[in-house]
Design a protein around this nucleic acid. Sequence first.
DNA 1: GCCAGAATAGCACGATCGGTCGTATCATGG
DNA 2: CCATGATACGACCGATCGTGCTATTCTGGC
Lengths: 199, 199
Amino acid sequence: MGKGTVTRERIIGRAVELASVDGLNGLTLGRLAEGIGMSKSGLFAHFRSKEELQRSVLETTITSFRRFVYEPGAAEPRGEPRLRSIFERWLAWQQEREEMPGGCLLMQASTELDDQPGPLRDLLVKAQRDWRDTLIAFARGGITAGHFRAEVDPALFAFQLEAIILGAGHDRRLLRDPLALSHARAAFEALLASARTTT
Amino acid sequence: MGKGTVTRERIIGRAVELASVDGLNGLTLGRLAEGIGMSKSGLFAHFRSKEELQRSVLETTITSFRRFVYEPGAAEPRGEPRLRSIFERWLAWQQEREEMPGGCLLMQASTELDDQPGPLRDLLVKAQRDWRDTLIAFARGGITAGHFRAEVDPALFAFQLEAIILGAGHDRRLLRDPLALSHARAAFEALLASARTTT
DNA sequence: GCCAGAATAGCACGATCGGTCGTATCATGG
DNA sequence: CCATGATACGACCGATCGTGCTATTCTGGC
């Protein structure tokens, strides 16, 4: 792996940190360069434009998310165990982590880009749609596995699951509510209970 | 009402439009001035700083929200009717409205300001905390009115309610999902059903 | 209809934005 | 160990940022 690739990854890593705090638009070449001790032009040479830097940041984050949340979940047996894994990993993902101090960049980008047409928005929308489809498939797997009732609407289930995560992020990051996690978990348990084959 | 006040309100009205699309940080004096056909300095004279402009925008939006969502709801009889009113008005509020084409500014600001300490964040947090407390009181009212079981956790109920709204905003604005509203309504009905005194 | 004070415009400032270019330095394969 | 391409730098561009200062225009009370 060449030196250029190493530097490029260091740049992107730091850019993810900054963007998670200030947003993809708040990300600035000057402050990014200062943040990694490089000249602005030296940094810029790794990307054809600021937008390509932003795209790299987004793509890297999407890949990280798949590794951190999706893959461990997909390895679990389908139905409840898989959904529980997804949920807990997703909660953990959006905690403050050193590589993303401003919380989930994808969530930040979702409100930031929702009115800004362009390739960045397209990329994000595609990733979010794919993820939603995955969740729907996992919910359907709960039915196939016999954990959930057949009348459960997988798309509605996926909507409710993501809504809980969004609520948790809101309460924890903005309101700094220490109950955010327990509320989210309780809501998730209620969602599971409502979907389960009644005992 | 003096001419100055009229102009000031016209400025803020337009600023709300712009900020709902580009965010409070994306709001710019130059583009705002151009948008209402004024000189940048003439506009600026109405505010001591950009931050005061942003503060005015936030405060105006918070007041609008109270009038649009809270007040009609508070006029309804407590318990389910009041909560249903709140929910529907809240959904309507975050639709694209001509005075806020970029969707709910408060939601946008929530992710934008969650890592930016300062008076703007403080103002937003206070408004959101107050609103949450209101929701909790309304949920408690459902118990007092005999609509909900006594074991219902009002804080959890309020969390779940706001989560549904957040999910609806996400699906509608980013994913452009036409099912967003019906998913939100179905989730709300499920929430009500789970809280009701079992029949 | 005049005049004080409010309202707006003109202009300039230092800083920073994304981006370009020519040059120097570094790393590495032959 | 040297040549050469990859990598990084400094200087600079025009545009725009937020924010002052000053002059002009407008407006409402007497």
